[in-house]
Design a protein around this nucleic acid. Structure first.
Lengths: 240, 240
DNA sequence: TGGGAGTCGTGATGCTGGTCACCGGACTGA
DNA sequence: TCAGTCCGGTGACCAGCATCACGACTCCCA
């Protein structure tokens, strides 16, 4: 089945390949069935906004395919990108559980497939399935963990280069390239977006990349980035 | 009953006055009884460390009396205070749920009374009492919310004065003084600690306070602080 | 085919705030 | 009573980075 945006849709959570990995794909059959009954499978084009910071929570969004940019935004328009969510992640979870407004904005980066569940349905589902409830707690604990790392990176860095180095190292670990001495990664973001991830300006990012290249720590070929000297990067990152 | 540190202990969660407010004080009798059976009531002097960032999770700490400083620490010794926890709060929750290391350090500011529950006992308790599990999810959602606000304050501020203004406004709302035009609050922290809360240096905090006084926005008498011009403070905070 | 729009690269300039250095006052314990 | 410690206050200096202002390049669509 092809969606309007050229995705081939995952038909059902019962047959989803991610089952073993993540929340709601790894539940007893009974719970999975009732989840199946309350979810709405939907597709979004790139650039679609799932929810906006400050909105009352409508429900949760289980990301099945594609990536979603999570950001917060200041009144002056300056934005900070917290992370790029990958398939398997559940978005809007904490707001839906607590009933408070969404604390960030979710916008698709690729065409995405999403399972949406209305808040009331979801809360009822949680009351009826204790296992799911525990899974939710686990997932929230992990989100909290990530947020703490974000705070550490933002709050305890002395300079922009330190934050950039941390980001690059973080990316290389996510890609499973961490073990390699010279990790290679695809730069899916613009300098502007990288700047928004580390809380600095676009020009600074450009200058920092130029500097790293000059010092032969990294090298770029088109949109792929090769880390030549991971050690130097770690030193710049404050040897965390 | 008097503890070694001059606290009069709260005897039991069954009779605790906070019951209606918070997690574990607001559960069905059956759950409360089994919680009662696995908790260890303990007392700490001021300056005691409940757990340290990076340690494997031993269990949760329910704060009954006193305040606890939660901080993260960089390798160079620079620390960032995330919040001062108040009675009713559950510390070490996310680490205990996820099994990952504690992501921050908890140190008592006052003499404290704490109910400690070992991780295995706690997880078993959660499996057996679905209501508690949902409460945990709620609590974690709230923690996540707070962390997001922290990220916003740290990441989207242009200047130190902006962060300080946000902090002062935040304090005045917590004290229930928010409605008053000229909120009054007790400064329980040193300039050094305030600096650690907003990620700046001690000298800068001193200078900023001097500046606010000169501009007649605040006024200090001993350790109490009076906000004269809340509007000006809001403007400085970026009118959030 | 030409002109937007989006992105990257770079110089000049000025301000914010970190850092160092030092002083004075309050408190404490010997 | 005095030394030691902690806290607050202040000046001088300068690195880092935001900001403004361009120019070049690519891609896409009218």
């Amino acid at each position: 089945m092809l969606s309007p945006y050229g995705l081939d849709l995952v038909e059902s959570c019962l047959t989803c390949k991610m089952r073993s990995e993540r929340l709601f794909c790894d539940l007893p059959a009974a719970a999975l069935q009732s989840f199946e009954a309350i979810k709405y499978a939907t597709a979004y084009p790139r650039g679609a906004v799932l929810f906006v910071e400050g909105q009352a929570p409508r429900g949760i969004f289980v990301l099945c395919k594609g990536r979603v940019k999570l950001s917060i935004c200041a009144t002056d328009g300056k934005t900070l990108i917290l992370k790029i969510a990958e398939p398997g992640e559940v978005l809007g979870l904490s707001a839906s559980v607590s009933g408070k407004p969404y604390e960030l904005t979710a916008e698709t980066v690729d065409p995405c497939q999403v399972n949406f569940v209305k808040r009331e349905d979801f809360l009822r589902f949680l009351k009826e399935h204790a296992e799911a409830c525990f899974k939710v707690a686990e997932q929230l604990a992990e989100k909290y963990n990530n947020a703490c790392h974000e705070v550490r990176a933002l709050g305890l860095s002395h300079s922009a280069i330190e934050k950039l180095a941390k980001l690059l190292l973080d990316w290389s670990t996510r890609n499973g390239e961490a073990s390699k001495p010279e990790p290679r990664l695809r730069m899916a973001l613009t300098h502007e977006e990288i700047a928004q991830m580390i809380g600095t300006s676009r020009e600074t990012v450009t200058r920092l990349f130029a500097d790293l290249k000059k010092r032969q720590i990294i090298q770029t070929k088109g949109s792929t980035l090769l880390v030549h000297n991971k050690g130097a990067l770690k030193v710049l990152a404050g040897a965390v």
